[in-house]
Computed example of a mutant assay.
Amino acid sequence: MSPIQTVSLSLFRFDSALDRLWALAQMGAARFSLPRTPDIGFWKLCGSGSGEGFTPVPNTSVYAILATWPDAATARARTREAPVWARYRARAAEDWTIFLAPTSVRGAWSGQTPFEVTAPATPGPLAALTRATVKPSRALKFWKHEPAISDMIGRDPNVIFKIGIGEVPLMQQVTFSIWPDATSMCAFARKGGPHAEAIRAVRDGGLFAEELYARFTVLGDHGSWEGRRPLASLTAPTPTDTPAEEYA
């Protein structure tokens, strides 16, 4: 079989003020060392929003690294051993990495199509990622509608995990969510009411300078988030790596 491109999303939580300052500084410093990581493809350093992550107010304790790799084995090895990940893990109070295989992608991210669909969608858990660059002239209008969309995601009983991250506060936003199956995710997307109206207003309002929508099969994870494995609630177990504390 041909190698399947694997996407890793690593989340890190920093508790002390000193560690948070270090993580903020890495938003600039780590971009010089990340490209030297063997086998890494597309990558992004991201901060996060406060609350459930879908707000314009930054959360200074949570940061993320998104990267693409030629296959799952390489993704697992590099996120365990590569210097950048090791430095983040050494400072973080908690970290969690999820591994994903792209099954559909539409749009661009920084002028690129970063995710390669090399395997068909399979039944079971899936993840959705939406990334957009908000036009500066339309930022206030976008954030007027975003709370209605985020509130519905947060209250949906089927969503397994959700977070909002971004490269530039207010302007470049990423929403990431995990669902037990395609049926539950599509049911959420079809909901009417304020949520649907807000999404329609965002899409029809010409608010974005660039957009990307992608879906992924969930391959596995390692580490924990908020003291638990987010994927543990899935009825069908997914592969896991060695717990993060064993190689930190």
Rank of each mutant, 00 (worst) to 15 (best):
G166K: 03
A198Y: 05
G192Q: 12
E245Q: 09
G41Y: 00
F12S: 03
A214K: 04
R91F: 04
I160W: 01
L66N: 01
G205Q: 06
D181C: 04
K191S: 12
P147E: 10
S2N: 11
M1V: 10
A187G: 05
L45W: 00
R228P: 01
T183F: 05
D156V: 06
R31K: 12
P56K: 03
E226M: 10
V84Q: 11
A86P: 03
R20Y: 08
W179R: 02
D39G: 00
A128I: 10
A121W: 00
S150I: 07
W69I: 07
E245A: 11
G49C: 01
R138H: 12
R131L: 11
V117S: 04
G193A: 09
A139Y: 07
A75R: 04
E94T: 04
P237K: 03
E245P: 03
S2A: 11
P56I: 03
I178Y: 02
W143N: 04
T217Y: 00
P58N: 05
A198R: 06
W43M: 02
K191M: 15
Q173E: 13
G28L: 13
P70L: 15
Y213Q: 15
F188N: 04
P70R: 15
R36T: 10
Y88V: 01
K44M: 06
R200Q: 14
L21N: 08
S2M: 10
Y88R: 05
F115K: 02
I163A: 12
T74K: 05
A73K: 15
A214S: 15
Q26H: 12
P70A: 07
D95G: 05
V84M: 11
S50R: 04
S150V: 10
V105E: 08
S137Y: 07
E197W: 03
L24G: 14
R76W: 14
T130H: 14
L212T: 03
S2Q: 10
K162N: 08
D151Y: 09
E52N: 09
P157H: 08
A23N: 11
E52Q: 07
R138M: 15
H195V: 04
L45D: 00
H222A: 12
P230D: 05
H145R: 14
A201M: 09
G206P: 03
A73M: 14
A232C: 03
L219W: 05
V174S: 14
L140W: 13
P56F: 05
R80Y: 11
G53L: 00
L219G: 02
S61H: 15
R215W: 06
S61Q: 13
T118G: 09
T130F: 14
A23H: 12
S2I: 07
T238C: 08
D95I: 00
V84F: 08
A187R: 10
G51D: 09
G205F: 04
L9N: 01
